[in-house]
Amino acid sequence: MNPTWSRFNITSIVLGFAFLYLPIVLLVVFSFNESKLVTVWGGFSTKWYVSLFHNQGLMDATWVTARVAVISATVATVLGTLAALTLTRYTRFKGRTLFSGMVFAPLVMPEVITGLSLLLLFVAVGLDRGFLTVTLAHITLTMCFVAVVVQSRLITFDRSLEEAAMDLGAPPVKTFFQITLPVIMPAIISGWMLAFTLSLDDLVIASFTSGPGATTLPMKIYSQVRLGVTPEINAACTILIAVVAVGVIIASLANKRREVQRQRDEQAAQRG
């Protein structure tokens, strides 16, 4: 039984959310500003979006970033899911403490350290810096986030489902693909999306590990921000926010639909 939701509670939530959202809202609003001054309103205009699409450097960087994000998120999801399985299913093997340390440490490790160390590795093995090295770096960082997301789902997973499948003669690999994978799929999808946005977002590690010809969008935005705040950057940021927002909405709708479908199936099964 939950007691009163006091006025103090409501106020702190409203203020907290205002703090979280107001800067983003202002950024979006001022991307439609006619005036070149970012902070003075000069009327509604979409001209910055038009000039954005004529900025070849920015468009190239967007394309590089999108490719890095899709590839690294996909590989990281596979590796992260394997890592999550290892953490939850194999409680005893040599070097397990080291393994869990290597999964959790990158979550909090300052990015300058991760970026520098990966760069020195790539130099040591003689790999030219560019698209490949950024992608490898992003896989390493984001797989740990995927592992944590998937692991939290695996911990609450009802293993009697797997046992039932194996009792009925399904081999473990088949059991995994037919029972375990569908159940943990929502976690895997949100892990992929988290990896995707982290990669889309990363400035520090990309700056260390990328080379000529592989400038990512955050690197481009960063170099422009250093020269001054312009509505064009606001417009670029707004588009990025919109892309992510649409992705999150689609994912949560799909999740809801699956949930409804599952409930319907369960009801049907009970009736049948």
Binding site: P23, I24, L26, L27, F30, V38, T39, T197, L200, D201, L203, P218, I221, Y222, V225, V229, I233, C237, L240, I241, V244, A245
Partner: peptide
């Protein structure tokens, strides 16, 4: 939403 963008928003 991007970390860089959220920090950038505060400059304005």
């Amino acid at each position: 939403t991007s970390f860089l963008i959220r920090v950038y928003a505060w400059i304005g």
